[in-house]
Structure formats: C-alpha cells, structure tokens
Design a protein around this nucleic acid. Structure first.
Lengths: 243, 243
DNA sequence: TGAATACCAGTTGTATACATTTTGCAAGAT
DNA sequence: ATCTTGCAAAATGTATACAACTGGTATTCA
C-alpha cells in the first residue's frame, strides 16, 4: 500500500460493497465471494472482511451459517418496519428536543431551511425545483437528528443506512415522479409543524408528527410496489425487496 | 488453528474483550493495544480486530482518530438516553404487537412467566427469591422482544448490548439491594398491565407502559449514582460512567 | 537555555500464506 | 432415474509478515 489517508482500503471496501449491493448489481440472496470481491475492488481480503462485518451490522448483508456472507433480501414487511422504526426514532429525537429545549441558533437554522424548502417548491407542480428540494430535505432531516444526543443520533443513522428507510429514499433525483412531487406539499407542512412543536415545547405533538411524516415514505413505498413497479430500479436498494 | 467450531477465535475475542471492558478491568478512555490484547486472549490480531470493530458498533469502544480503539466513557446523560431508547424501542415493539395481534400460544407463554414472576416475589421482601426473579425477568423481556419483527428486535438487542441499558442491568445477582427489591413490586404490576394491554389491542397503552417501565432502570441508576456509589462496581459496565 | 529535528520504538492497517471446512460434481450403486 | 459416496476445487477463518504512521525522546543547532 502506498497511501495518503488512514484506513483507505477499508473505506474503499465499505463503499464499494455497499454500492454493489444497493445498486442491485449483486442479486439478493447471492453469496458474496471474498476473493472475487477483493479482486474486483482492487484490495485484499482483510479490509474487505471488515467491510462485510460492518455491513452485516447495518443489515444489508447477512452471515451464512456455514461461513461467509450473502446479500440480504427484504420482504415488504421488513421495509415497512424499517420505515416505522425511523419514524419512531425521529419522533423520540424531536420529543426530547422539545422537552429539553433547543438553542435559538439551531432553531434559526431550521427556519432558514424551511424557507429554502418553501422556495424550492414554489409555483406549479411541474416547475418545482425537485432536485433542490431533495438536497434540502436531506439537510433538514440531518439537522433534526442533530438535535438529539449522540446515542440516539447513532441509532437513527444506523437505521437509515438501509437506504429505503432514509428520509430521502423516495426523493432520489433519478426518481422524479409526479406522485412523489405531490407528496411534498404535505411533507413541507409537516416540516413546519414539527419545528413549531419543538418551539412550543410540545413533545407529544412533535413525536406524533415525526411518525406521521415517516408514513409518507411508506405511502411512496406502496405506490412503487403496487402501482408502478418500474420504479423499483430507480429507488436505492429496492431491488432487494422480494414479492 | 486446530479447532472444532467455526469462527471460534472470533467469538472468543468478542466475549473476551467485552468482559474486560464491562468488568472495568480496562479503564474508560484507555487505549486497547491490539498486540497486548491478542496475547492476553491467546489469539491473533485478526479475530481481535473483528471483535473491536463490532464492539465499536455496539458502542462499548470508540475509534481513535489516529488509529486503533479506546474504551468509551459514558456520561450520566449517555446512560439515561440509552435507557430511554430501550423504553422507546420496547414500547414500539409492544404497540405493534397490540396493533397487529399476537398468537394465543405466545400470550400463554407470557402469562405463564407472569405467574412464575409472581411466585418468585411471594411473601415478605426479605424472603423473596431475588435470583429467580432476575432470571425470569430477563426471560420475560426477551419474550416481549420476540413479539416484534426481526428488524425491531435487532435494534433492541443492539441497544441492550450496552449492559447498563438492559432490563436486567440493576437486577444483577451481585447487586441484591433492598432498594432494588422494592422496585420489583411496581415492576411486576407493569408487566401484567403490558400483557393486558396487548391482549386488549390497546397499542398506545402498551407503548406508554413499556416506556414507564424502563424508567425504573433510570430510577435505579440515579440511586446508584447519587445515593450509594459503592454499588457502581456491582452493576455491569457502570464503572465506565464518569462523573 | 530553548526550540527544532532526527531517530526509534511501538502501533496500526494491509497483504498474504496456510489449514480446515464447505460445496459442487461426477461416478457408482440400488 | 434417484440417491449415496468420494473427491477435488474453492472458500472461509486465522496467523503472520510487512510497511507506513504516530508519539516521544534525545540530540543538535542557534
């Protein structure tokens, strides 16, 4: 090795395998051959194995009893529960933020993001700045997570490492669909209500709103699976869902 | 290697390091020297590194920016949030169980455990079968987790891998204290109410009860930290709490 | 005397070698 | 034709070798 950054190969392994799995290039259930992967990624088996062990913790990959790993496959119920789980955790984060209080500076950042989100969806549905909204939405949710303590933030980040459980799962730039665009109006209303609830120290309301907000992802999931399965390919990791 | 089980050394590494950290044999903040640990456990660095990486995910150990790992240290707030997190996740599990329904056979198992728990705390406080209650309580909670889907169960198990966040954290046989014994009466009443709520499909009540139930652990934590710090040594991993 | 530097031990991250186990396949028996 | 058995290739788990980096100490130079 000849490199600059510390633990470079490990990072390459982690991102490389994650991409291969999420993109669906390796089918769900398929065994992950260490030698083949190591060669494909141009690294040795050691950092690769570290990546596989971590991806098992993240839930993208599962250990085979006889040894090695395979790409995990998810049922519809798995995905629904992962989304519900995110809602519950975000709800907890918001409730605690409301109960314990948030520094004014941070609330200011949230309001600024709300205003930018408003701008992004200005005008008619057809001309809204979808890509910009996608980016801002991801930033907004990350800011919300930042209100929580490290312990809770860690869990949220782990759960959302399953791409279809992330708040941006169905807001990918490759999946710009009318049905998704329309869902953004309700979403933005919920964003504002969540921030308002935190300001008013209304913990229960903030929690309920976060849960209902996550429910939008579930709606979008069901739209993809039941109404337009051609979108499966465009939503990250959704190719791992069977049935 | 000459061994029987698959991935034997990795398991040994994981349990070995976990024990060293939880028991407090290695101080919070101390660097975990790989060569020293490997020699101490009689294994090579490879399975040891796998164990360290996993313990980092579990939260017991943290990566040092310049490389390697150190024993993590927890603030009182960290522990409180971990307990609260368990309460929220158990609450989610029970709510979903209530909403979606539970097979009668499983409810039967829960009732049987409730009866056994009743037996264990029969009679006067002084003569209750504390050790037996401890075991049954752990089994009961595991059965509750079993009501949830794999996704949620995984998260609960990860969170409770921090020993002080587990439902048995303050019910350790080495920490048989009057204050803890007395808390069991209220706890058992909550156990019964939780099962009842699931049977009546009262999801919100089940969730609220699970959260309040976890709050007992917080009370016990505060008792240890504020009233009888000599107990710190007897509660697993509590020596990692600073302040 | 103080600061900068060069060196050195110790440590981690990565690659590779090795032994055991698993698995796929083909041949043979029923 | 189907199931069993044996074997070889491949894959995993572990150990070890190696190179780069970190941190600290002693030396050197101003």
């Amino acid at each position: 090795m000849e490199k600059t950054d510390r633990a470079m190969q490990s990072q390459r392994a982690l991102m490389g395998v994650r991409d291969l799995v999420i993109s669906g290039e390796i089918r769900a259930g398929a065994r992950l051959s260490e030698v083949a992967l190591a060669e494909k990624l141009g690294i040795s088996r050691t950092p690769l194995r570290a990546a596989l062990a971590r991806l098992e913790q993240e839930g993208l990959v599962e250990a085979i009893p006889s040894g090695g790993y395979a790409v995990r496959s998810f049922t519809r119920e798995d995905v629904i529960d992962a989304i519900e789980l995110r809602g519950v955790l975000e709800g907890m984060a918001l409730r605690l933020a409301a109960e314990r209080g948030v520094a004014p500076a941070r609330m200011g950042e949230l309001h600024r993001l709300l205003a930018e989100l408003d701008q992004a969806q200005q005008g008619e549905v057809e001309q809204m700045d979808f890509d910009r909204y996608v980016d801002l939405n991801a930033t907004f949710h990350e800011k919300l997570w930042g209100l929580a303590s490290q312990t809770i933030r860690r869990e949220i980040e782990r759960v959302t490492s399953l791409p279809f459980a992330s708040p941006s799962a169905f807001l990918h730039k490759q999946a710009d669909v009318m049905a998704f665009r329309r869902s953004l109006y309700g979403a933005q209303a919920q964003h504002k209500a969540m921030v308002n609830a935190i300001e008013l120290r209304e913990g229960a309301r903030a929690e309920a709103l976060a849960r209902e907000h996550a429910r939008l992802a579930r709606q979008n999931l069901e739209f993809v699976l039941d109404e337009d399965r051609s979108l499966i390919r465009r939503v990250p990791a959704l190719s791992l869902v069977v049935g």
